[in-house]
Write a protein that binds this DNA or RNA. Structure first.
Lengths: 210, 210
DNA sequence: ATGTTCATACCGACCAGATGGTTTAAAAAT
DNA sequence: ATTTTTAAACCATCTGGTCGGTATGAACAT
């Protein structure tokens, strides 16, 4: 049964990520990971030289997927309309419908989990998280600058921090959702963000309540 | 050095809370806690029968302080004005000025940290967090109901989830602030929340940018 | 076809130190 | 006289990590 290293590596990472989202990084011992993954210690250390290396691999994969969502959903929004404000709202609406379908296994963000244990990680690991958040800020802020150029906002706002508000809502809503055991929180909060943008740029409100 | 158990107990809790905010609960071993606190193992277990009991004590104290902030800042806001909308904005403004002064040691929320390791805790511990968040929701939602009674909102909004938005912004902003190493994030995001409320209830914008 | 070589993939016993927790006897402070 | 604290030894279990060995299968030479 040799010769499928990629699949095994993926199994380890998937298992570890799920466990870490439940118990944190420190709380997810290698023994528990390999137990759940159905592999042995030798195999684990064949694929990852150390536990910090696993953390690095996980955070890099998470960041890659996260940035892919940013890009693909932004492109989809750009095909729906030419107006940057409506693009941003459409961008958020996609995440909202995605979150609206969630029910049982509560969502979690690897970044939040690692952030809450940040003292344990190497700089390179935390740097991936920081750079990913800054990429979001930059992409969204670009769109916001285009928006204010065509539609003057009804209140003075700083565009970088308004861009950050999206990340803030995601991270905060994940935590509140899990704490309250309420799967609807993320979708609801994304809806408030859309309402904020609508009000800010003077767009008539959606009929559904935020 | 006997007969001041309360002081020692407080030292243990303060040290543990600070450590947990850096490294998480699992990452904060009892050995490290007593090392930093300058006490011995015997003393620790004299005050706390087990590690889960320490978690419980910490979360209860945190909740108590948190609810005290809610009450005291709400009362202060109620003395500033009679209008519920302005009360809510004043309420948030107090937290904003508080957060605005922060510089070095980045903020953290024990609830967020515990939430990210929630699989490790007993139900009673998680229940304290849940009840605290629900108390916030209920108190803020009351105020929001009073607000919509006097001032009809410019967009249809669900009041419970709008109340939750405050908790969401706190939790999310803590995480983004720490990840980006940016002490201003929390204050900025609280400002956006105020702007949202102002726009929602048709109040002229503040001059400072959000 | 067949035996050999070789890198990849995997196993599981083993290790030293850390973990949460206990015990005991004695010393301080009130 | 009682509460609080210390110091140190002790325990079973868990921790991240190492190591020698094994199975696999494709490549290659024969």
């Amino acid at each position: 049964m040799a010769r499928n290293g990629d699949k095994t590596r993926k199994t380890i990472m998937d298992t570890a990520e799920a466990l870490i989202l439940e118990q944190g990084f420190s709380g997810s011992s290698i023994d528990r990971i390999i137990d759940r993954a159905g592999i042995t210690k030798g195999t684990f250390f064949y694929h990852f030289p150390s536990k910090p290396d696993l953390a690095q691999a996980l955070v890099e994969r998470f960041a890659r997927r996260d940035l892919h969502q940013l890009t693909s959903k932004m492109e989809a929004a750009e095909q729906q309309t030419d107006d940057p404000v409506h693009q941003l709202i459409a961008f958020l609406a996609q995440f909202e419908s995605l979150a609206d379908e969630w029910t049982a296994p509560y969502p979690g963000c690897l970044f939040a989990t690692f952030c809450c244990e940040s003292g344990l990680f190497e700089d390179r690991t935390l740097a991936v998280m920081r750079e990913t958040m800054l990429t979001w800020r930059s992409r969204i802020a670009d769109k916001l600058r285009a928006a204010v150029a065509t539609t003057p906002p009804r209140a003075p706002v700083d565009l970088d921090s308004l861009a950050d508000a999206i990340t803030v809502v995601f991270e905060g809503a994940f935590i509140v959702s899990r704490t309250l055991n309420d799967p609807k929180t993320v979708a609801q909060q994304l809806r408030h963000l859309q309402t904020y943008l609508r009000l800010l740029f003077g767009i008539e409100a959606d009929t559904r309540p935020a």
